[in-house]
Nucleic acid binder design. Sequence first.
DNA 1: GTACTCGTACTGACGAAGGCTCATCGGCTC
DNA 2: GAGCCGATGAGCCTTCGTCAGTACGAGTAC
Lengths: 298, 298
Amino acid sequence: MSLRQYEYALAVAEQGSVTAAAELLHVAQPSVSQQIRSLERELGVTLFARTPTGLVPTVVGRAFLREAEVAVSASRRARATARAGADELVGELLVAAQMGLGTRQLPRALGALRRRFPRLEVTVFEEPSSAELERLCRRGVLDLAFMAACERSPADAHHLGEEEFVVVLGDGHRLLAADRVELRELDGEPWVRFDRESALDGVLLNVLRNNELTPTTAARVSQTATAVRWAAHGLGVTLVPAAAVPHDHEHLTRPVFPVVSQPVIAVLRHSAGPAETALLELLRQETWHKTASFSRVS
Amino acid sequence: MSLRQYEYALAVAEQGSVTAAAELLHVAQPSVSQQIRSLERELGVTLFARTPTGLVPTVVGRAFLREAEVAVSASRRARATARAGADELVGELLVAAQMGLGTRQLPRALGALRRRFPRLEVTVFEEPSSAELERLCRRGVLDLAFMAACERSPADAHHLGEEEFVVVLGDGHRLLAADRVELRELDGEPWVRFDRESALDGVLLNVLRNNELTPTTAARVSQTATAVRWAAHGLGVTLVPAAAVPHDHEHLTRPVFPVVSQPVIAVLRHSAGPAETALLELLRQETWHKTASFSRVS
DNA sequence: GTACTCGTACTGACGAAGGCTCATCGGCTC
DNA sequence: GAGCCGATGAGCCTTCGTCAGTACGAGTAC
């Protein structure tokens, strides 16, 4: 069951003779003859009828050859894509991002990447929980991961910038009067929070603890856009990355004091290839908040 | 570039480790390791990233593996169809028939064949000119051929029966009054004939010569159904196999005297398989004119 | 009709290359 | 340091390729 046998059989069928096929394949005639016979012996079927003027495929021979041709051409394609990958850049890049990280920059960088390498496809997973993300990244399934912190930071962790958080208030909320919101002013407010285990909820908990506030949970959601919408409707206040707020709700956001931000760290896989580094380079060229914050959270 | 290398690579990608893949494939670990490396060396690309816990496909590795999987599964299918052909009957049977031969019996036999062996497909070529048909049959491209005579008859020629010819007359023709038509009564009639080189035209020429008639050609057509229709419209008379006349024109046909008929001979390919012989057996069970004729042609 | 040549595929012996296994080494994790 | 991972090198064996020679049928000359 070797590809060579398939190629030989196809050549024989096409040429109608072992001798001609051997010439085409640049091997001696007995070699082709032996391969055909061993193939027939292995399959327990006669693939070719022997005529005085050459070999002609039988009924099952033709059925077999149809499939064999698919196998051979798929093999050629596999080879070709691999060789193409040596110079050009082809394949599928797997990226995962903790929710809220690079919401604005990632699409732009991916667009630029796609323009430069059209045959490179990109798939993005969003927030498979920070523990899950850590696990996937360590297992090497991902080519690139965005996270706020990596505990045992690999050598391939790159700090891109800071992601600043803003508070979202209900329409007509009293605190909208000021330019910024002091965190302790939020004492007693009900909160629109995020799923347990999620990184964003971890940030919120940290902030509240640091400022000695006790949280009242109004609701839990899994997407930043949902949290913003619910907060805008007055269900409670929420804390999300500034970049994750839709434009039509920006007037309900205020920066907080002390500043809340988390680092954006891109983690490349072990032994990263040119595709991964190209994407990282494009991400670096995007604009990020460089401000080191006072109360950085994990 | 061997299928084995593809299978090994797929197993490694699936298991995420060389050791596990080797266990799955029932070989030793170094064997898998070597194959993967030789594959990468041959392609000039790193397909897998080495992590402390195993191997993970790279970007181009994944692109390669997608194609490789197609190749491997196609190979399995090829094997499976061939092995199935050993017991069952699968494949495509190529049949060619001189026009007008077995027009009635062939479809019935093919229907019976298809009911008994559903995975056996049949393709029928009609009248690739008798010389061309002879050539194809000798080259072994065909599994079964219907002809009126084979010059150097192979051992696998089987006489099935006789195909009787009838004359088709225009609507209201004077000779329709009788039950049969004497050939010499047709002297001076214009003829709807068949393509030069075609076997049917050869039959007609033979008949006319034997009965000392001089033909007047009204038209030439390539299909029996067309000839019948044109003759019915009074363009001339024609001579076709009785079985080839559509039901709605049978009232315009008359047997001729002396009787004109040609043998129906089925020629099997060299070293015919079970599919071919099964079809031949079914054809034998159909009803054929057994009458040996007076003036058999060609 | 017979004999000859030409073409075809098959067979067996030999040499070379590649695959498989075993034992061992180097790295990393826990 | 123990245990897991993959990588490497030596030896054995299977496999593939080549060269010779064989067998069989077709076409042709006489």
